[in-house]
């Protein structure tokens, strides 16, 4: 599968015990994951070019959080997708489905080539928002403000059943304007759901402009905290920082955690698309496509030669 081996590779000289430990969890290699994240953006780009639609800006901002979750943090794979003790994820910002598909494909849930060719095509199972008829997708989303409340239900159920599962959801920052999100924040705080971790992809842009122009979230940190949450912030386009934030969340035993992931919309695609509201769902021209590929390649080269 696409780039899968690269991440799973382990150094040779290891004791048997080390190996056993690492069998359950691949060694964390920030460089490899960062490269994976850039390469998966290229998959997203191809998906969007082929279908003529998609939400590229948010796809690129959220990719590093997804890669950290699926390739470092979460206990979920095609092998254990029906195990009740797995970790659960809901893509609440369902419009970033292209990133989600790219990550799930890289994880082996389906073939990358298939999703690139079939995304949004007539009769396709790869709909323009997550659909749980596809392997690896827990819940359907697309309408904003659903992921957190549904995650609350999952976290409650898993706690009642004494499962080791952790529940993750990623929201957009524009999405936080939905009232139902706050119903979810309130209930999770009330029930002290420490097995729940929400991420806000804080790219500061939404379809009509900056989040601060549309509906301000200046006090998001304090607002969520006041609902009884552990709130942390991280550079959402830095896999090492995201990992640290997810690890910190696991140490909190009496509250749910929200990670405000400060990101750049369009991250990795270069000047042409980074931090531009108009690229929320812009479909690149052939010229723009080449520019973006070049930017992704350059970034990858930079990391390889760090």
């Amino acid at each position: 599968m696409f780039l899968r081996a690269q991440c799973m590779e382990k150094p040779d000289a290891e004791t048997e015990t080390d190996m056993e430990v690492k069998m359950s969890k691949p060694e964390f290699d920030v460089k490899a994951l960062t490269i994976k994240s850039l390469e998966l953006r290229k998959v997203v780009l191809d998906m969007i070019m082929k279908s003529g639609g998609g939400h590229i800006g948010g796809d690129f901002s959220v990719m590093d959080a997804l890669v950290t979750l699926y390739f470092d943090q979460m206990n979920v794979s095609p092998e254990n997708m029906d195990d009740p003790d797995r970790d659960y994820f809901i893509m609440s910002k369902g419009h970033s489905v292209e990133s989600y598909y790219a990550v799930l494909a890289a994880k082996g849930f389906f073939e990358t080539e298939k999703v690139v060719n079939e995304f949004s095509q007539f009769g396709s199972k790869f709909i323009g928002h997550p659909n749980n008829e596809l392997p690896g997708i827990e819940m359907n989303s697309g309408s904003l403000g659903h992921g957190l409340p549904v995650s609350v239900g999952m976290a409650l159920a898993c706690r009642k059943e004494n499962r080791p599962s952790r529940i993750y959801t990623i929201m957009g920052d524009g999405e936080v304007a939905e009232g139902s999100v706050w119903e979810g924040f309130m209930a999770a705080g009330h029930y002290q759901l420490s097995n729940l971790c929400a991420v806000v992809d804080r790219n500061r842009l939404q379809i009509s402009g900056t989040t601060e122009q549309v509906m301000t979230h200046e006090n998001l940190h304090a607002q969520i905290e006041s609902f009884g949450w552990n709130v942390t912030e991280a550079n959402g386009n830095d896999i090492a920082e995201m990992r640290e934030a997810f690890e910190q969340a696991k140490t909190v035993t009496d509250r749910p955690t929200c990670i405000i992931a400060n990101t750049v919309k369009g991250y990795g695609g270069g000047e042409i698309m980074e931090n531009k509201a108009a690229w929320h769902h812009h479909v690149p021209t052939q010229e723009e496509y080449k520019e973006i590929v070049k930017a992704l390649e350059a970034k990858k080269e930079g990391i390889l030669h760090e």
């Binding site: 549904v150 009642k160 139902s180 979810g184 309130m186 209930a187």
Partner: peptide
């Protein structure tokens, strides 16, 4: 869930997904 019908239904959906 308190006076929050949207949350009521979403929470139930999450619980049902986890086997309840």
């Amino acid at each position: 869930v308190g006076i929050a019908e949207q949350n009521l239904v979403s929470i139930a959906a999450g619980m049902a997904h986890c086997g309840e």
